[in-house]
């Protein structure tokens, strides 16, 4: 029974997340406490979910791209562009508190994100540029596009309806959590209830054999980049609405790297093939918890990245079966030095 649990793909990510939470609990006993203020729940756990929402969204899209054997480096830039587009639309409106204006802004951002995803997908499928280079183009140029939209300024908006997306509450929980849940649900249904999940895994695992089995691999690949762009776009909306402003330079900075990390921690191989959406969500939560922990225990800001790097390295090593095996063999050898001696002489 224990052996079976061991082999489940969510086992190690959950262990790591549990260990992080346990550390927090020991360090600050009121970490798990939730308070109700003004009808809304407050607490560190809620913060992790709330602030982690954009990363989870981006990571979900990234998972599906990586499953096809690709990668999308441009998600951070799409986050910035989407936020900039929404804030620009709202700031240009005559009635800054109108609901219609917010809907228009959201639709414009999402449409733009889809177009950007198509651009990535077209570069990969039509011009056959390697995904890492194809998306690097938008990663770099995207920051410029975001600056262009905001004219190099930070656009600040004050529209309570727009704020609701990233800072509002529903049933005493942050609204962003519901957005993430909805996207996760849709992604799970699409990939597990239709055949698209099978096609993605097939194309990612063996593109040539998939072609010979009659799969339209180009369409599949184009679709995953569009979906990834869409996820990044929604993340951009949450992020910019949370602070009621759009910063073309810094919004979503390094998100692509955190997202890739979340995917890998979640158990999806960078070589493509099998993918695990729930694993990715846990991976993203691990990263967000880690960030919160580092702030909470008061690591000096100049070394937070180094601390984060070491924890991530440890997480990756724990997940690696080869590493665990080596560790165990070493441990056993150390316990029985005499036995080793005998075999060496024999």
């Amino acid at each position: 029974m224990g052996g079976k649990m061991h082999r489940h793909h969510l086992f190690w990510p959950l262990v790591v997340l549990g260990a992080l939470l346990l550390f927090n609990l020991i360090y600050s006993p009121d970490f798990f406490s939730l308070a109700v203020r003004g009808g809304n729940l407050y607490g560190s756990l809620i913060d992790i979910l709330n602030f982690g929402a954009p990363l989870i969204l981006v990571s979900i899209g990234m998972t599906i791209v990586i499953a096809t054997g690709g990668i999308d480096l441009s998600v951070g830039s799409i986050v910035a562009i989407s936020g900039a587009m929404a804030c620009l639309t709202i700031s240009k409106g005559t009635d800054p508190s109108s609901v219609l204006l917010v809907i228009g802004a959201v639709l414009a951002s999402i449409a733009l994100s889809i177009v950007l995803g198509m651009w990535n997908g077209a570069l990969v499928t039509v011009t056959r540029i390697q995904p890492i280079i194809a998306t690097l183009i938008l990663m770099v140029a995207g920051r410029g596009i975001a600056q262009l939209i905001t004219s190099g300024q930070i656009i600040t908006v004050s529209n309570s309806n727009y704020e609701y997306i990233g800072a509002g509450s529903l049933a005493s929980l942050p609204f962003s959590i519901f957005i993430v849940a909805a996207v996760l649900l849709i992604a799970s249904l699409l990939t597990r209830r239709t055949a698209i999940g099978l096609f993605i895994e097939s194309v990612g695992s063996n593109p040539e054999a998939s072609r010979l089995a009659g799969l339209r691999s180009r369409t599949v690949i184009l679709t995953v980049y569009v979906f990834c762009g869409l996820c990044a776009g929604i993340a951009g909306l949450i992020l910019s609405s949370n602070v009621s402003s759009a910063d073309g330079n810094n919004a979503g900075l390094w998100y692509e790297l955190d997202a890739i990390l979340a995917v890998v921690i979640g158990g999806t191989s960078l070589n493509g093939g099998r993918f695990y959406l729930m694993g990715t969500v846990i991976g993203a939560l691990i990263i967000q918890t880690l960030t919160t922990t580092i702030y909470m225990i008061g690591v000096p800001p100049e070394i937070t990245l180094v601390v984060k790097a070491f924890v991530v390295l440890a997480v990756c090593l724990i997940q690696s079966e080869a590493f665990r095996k080596t560790l165990i063999t070493r441990w056993k050898k150390r316990n029985y030095p005499a036995e080793q001696e005998v075999t060496r002489h024999a």
Binding site: L198, E201, G204, S205, N206, L212, A213, G273
Partner: peptide
């Protein structure tokens, strides 16, 4: 190289 999809099950 041209037949099986490694990561998938027999059924798939």
């Amino acid at each position: 190289t041209e037949g099986i999809i490694d990561d998938l099950t027999v059924r798939e």
